[in-house]
Write a protein that binds this DNA or RNA. Structure first.
Lengths: 220, 220
DNA sequence: CGGCAGATTGACCCTCATCAATCAAGGTGG
DNA sequence: CCACCTTGATTGATGAGGGTCAATCTGCCG
């Protein structure tokens, strides 16, 4: 989520290329740097002792990865490239030291962390209180907004992740994701062709969040 | 979650009493302080523009409230006392300034924030991938662990919140919470009497997390 | 061309939400 | 002190939403 702010760039050092499917870092690896995404996209994955695995977020160019590990010794989860990507490593030691001398940077770091908390909180709310349809709508709208904020089209874009990964993030099975995308298409809200999404009725899509049931309403 | 660390106490100033049902702070109110809980307990509540409401956490003596608002202008949610309680206000302005001069404090603040992210992440995993039974088990075990960490009994305690509030946190309806507590009792895992919980079979309760189905297994 | 990962769609069934009745506990006022 | 009311909890009946299993389809890459 968090944007790659100018202040952070001051510290930003070495670049690194990561190819589709490769790990940027592993859970448990020593934490030593934040990563600003210059190009491409990633997923964050968490896995529990009992073998459960869950996607905790998707991240695109302009966002910062690794915030959840600040203050820890080790990385809290895996980060995996969804396509060929490039990042800048921002050594946390440096950043930490610089932040001590530079209140503005310190405040910015707090803001980034708070943003991360905010992001997870939104997801909690989604997982705790929304139905499948609403989750998908919220997901698409969120993607749309973030892409637009980086200068891309808000209404037409490519999903960099599989239906299964989307499902994992949203607490749904891949079949459910697929079905609901089809339903949205049948309702004329979006057009789906493989991973290409076109939002046709933005307002109607927003209205999905909160509606009780799509089919037995007044209509038809 | 986060413990009330010694360093924070240096800054801690004025005390404040909050009675059961009263707000410690409101969503949207200007954020100016963290709150260390000295006695009692609270719930954090979030409500969305479309009127949804969700409990995002329960907090007990020794934990810090308001971390999610660090770096923001305004409080991100409501905090409401579950019983008569007492807190110490830790003015964030002071804390922030002091952190600049004191690397150890800065690092501690980062740790607290990271802990908050960790806490929410655990909840995300729970909401995204666990069934109702597992959620309840995880909830009880989490409470047990936190109480034990503060010197209370790990096996016998009082729930300070209603079934509905538990359900809200776990993404379940209050009836489901009630039913599953009854089921746990019938299975001999716990004893329930109103809000008093006694954990009878800790290992078995842990084993609930991960088991596929309780009733149509081999047995009977 | 074949093989494979990912996506779609259908049929069935389980978990949990919903609606509703009953019960227990606690507080209040007479 | 007891009757009354309110709030919270328990339990049952029923059904919908979404999970599971499985077949088929599509696009892509070797």
């Amino acid at each position: 989520m968090a944007a790659l702010e100018p202040l952070l760039m001051r510290v930003g050092g070495t670049r690194r290329r990561v190819r589709r499917g490769e790990y940027l870092f592993h859970a448990g690896a020593p934490f030593h740097a934040l990563h600003g995404i210059r190009a491409g996209s990633f997923k964050s994955v968490l896995l529990t002792e009992d073998g459960r695995e869950q996607v905790t977020g998707f991240h695109m160019a302009g966002e910062v990865l690794g915030l959840d590990s600040v203050g820890s010794e080790a990385c809290g989860g895996d980060a995996i490239a969804l396509e060929d990507s490039e990042v800048v490593e921002i050594p946390f030691e440096e950043l930490d030291a610089l932040a001590s001398r530079e209140p503005a940077l310190q405040r910015e770091l707090f803001k980034l962390l708070a943003g991360e908390i905010q992001r997870e909180r939104t997801l909690m709310l989604l997982l705790g209180s929304m139905r499948a349809e609403e989750r998908l709508a919220a997901f698409l709208l969120n993607l749309s907004k973030r892409l637009a904020a980086r200068g891309w089209s808000a209404t037409q874009f490519l999903l960099r992740m599989t239906r299964e990964e989307i499902g994992s993030l949203l607490g749904l099975k891949l079949e459910t994701v697929s079905r609901i995308l089809s339903r949205f298409q049948a309702e004329g809200l979006i057009a789906v062709r493989n991973r290409e999404i076109t939002i046709l009725e933005l307002c109607a899509l927003k209205a999905v969040i909160g509606r009780v049931d799509s089919r037995r309403e007044i209509g038809a």
